[in-house]
Design a protein around this nucleic acid. Structure first.
Lengths: 156, 156
DNA sequence: ATTAGTAATGGAAACCATTTTCAATAAGGA
DNA sequence: TCCTTATTGAAAATGGTTTCCATTACTAAT
């Protein structure tokens, strides 16, 4: 499937409708925002941005939509340790590459890195397989995240 | 330093006092509990257990102590995604080995695994070094965690 | 010991991200 | 159109964690 066909509302519509849900204006706005923004936004961030254009979309709906899209595997919920969840498009959607995060504990800046990913993925696969066999788990996800101080914060 | 000398209040006392803090009964109780228990306890779990013997130790103090010990690097704060933080002795303390966690998203059971750790550590070190150079971070920690369904939960 | 200064404490209240409740509305199928 | 079900927003509830504040416990100096 050529990547060019994987973008925009048509792709989402199929996936959302295909699962028996409706693609309402609010849901579409949230998907649109997530797919164009590079930041990792919290529910409130999203609510704020959406609210300017769609003043009738409430915070509750944002939370509900994020949960739904997360359940459908279209977005990922992230935890950078600052007490609020962040969201990003899931791997594969709109050409999102496998990547991990590097978080500054000083200013909460997040770097999305893809360096060393090949080796990581290789080890990941191996480890997953081993763990599944040894502990009889069906592994569905993983978190790999580094934390530390960015250059600006470590100078202080 | 032989491992036998690294256990109990004397070891803690030195480390806590050495940083200019006092080793109060509450703090000692919490350290004692964490060093003998195998579970990953939440602040409330700890409060409950401590409270039976030291009924004068409040939940606030438990939270404060956990933060302190975490800052001192004696314990680690963990997040298994159920909305409450868990704690365990830090790597190196009382012979705690480097390990990672495998979490069941069905029942929240946690498996502490050390399999594949050597390879992981190797990759980890390499990745850390690379990330530090490329992004000018001083890396201080990492999270590697797998999630999935355990055998009991995947049968349902 | 006594004192003075600081660290540590607990209970209550505040905080704040997220969920739940509930009544109203919108959308799709018959 | 009517009917059933999905979706919604506002307000209230939830629940883990922090903050406030007045009190108590240490420790070092006198």
């Amino acid at each position: 499937m050529p990547r060019g066909h994987c973008r925009g509302q048509w792709w989402w519509r199929g996936r959302v409708y295909g699962c028996g849900y409706r693609l309402t204006a609010g849901r579409e706005a949230i998907l649109g925002l997530l797919s164009t923004s590079k930041e990792h936004m919290s529910a409130e961030d999203i609510y704020m941005k959406i609210h300017t254009a769609y003043s009738n979309v409430g915070l509750t709906t944002v939370y509900r939509t994020l949960e739904l899209l997360s359940d459908l595997g279209m977005i990922c919920k992230l935890d950078f340790g600052d007490g609020r969840a962040r969201y990003e498009l899931a791997e594969g959607v709109q050409g999102v590459r496998h990547h991990h995060h590097l978080v500054c504990t000083g200013c909460n800046r997040v770097v999305e890195y893809t360096d060393f990913i090949d080796k990581e993925v290789e080890l990941l696969k191996e480890t997953e397989k081993g763990l599944e066999e040894k502990y009889h788990f069906k592994i569905t996800g993983h978190v790999i995240q580094f934390s530390g101080l960015c250059d600006r914060c470590s100078c202080k």
